[in-house]
Amino acid sequence: MASSTIQEPFDLIRLSLSERVFVKLRGDRELTGILHAYDGHMNLIMSDVEETIMLVDVVDGAPPGQPATVNVAKRKMPMLFVRGDGVILVSPPSRT
């Protein structure tokens, strides 16, 4: 199990280098891509990245309880620098 080699949270990231990771960002954005580098701020260098942007349309005057329509936009980027302060969560590929 991976927990035997993890002493600090950054070890989880170190073990994910060169792997495809899921990154949750502020502003309802998510990334999946291959992690190439990171630092103590959680600045990230990723390649082969797909960004998913959740856009929630709030309809004025809509009855309460009506589900808000969620539009999903996607785009791809070959290489990306992510500034660390936008990162909420990083999840490595499941090691099963």
């Binding site: 991976a2 949270p9 989880l12 990231i13 909420i88 969560l89 990083v90 999840s91 499941s94 090691r95």
Partner: peptide, 11 residues
């Protein structure tokens, strides 16, 4: 669901 997750502390 995530097998492992790193959460940045400021959040």
């Amino acid at each position: 669901r995530y097998g492992d997750a790193f959460i940045r502390g400021n959040n």
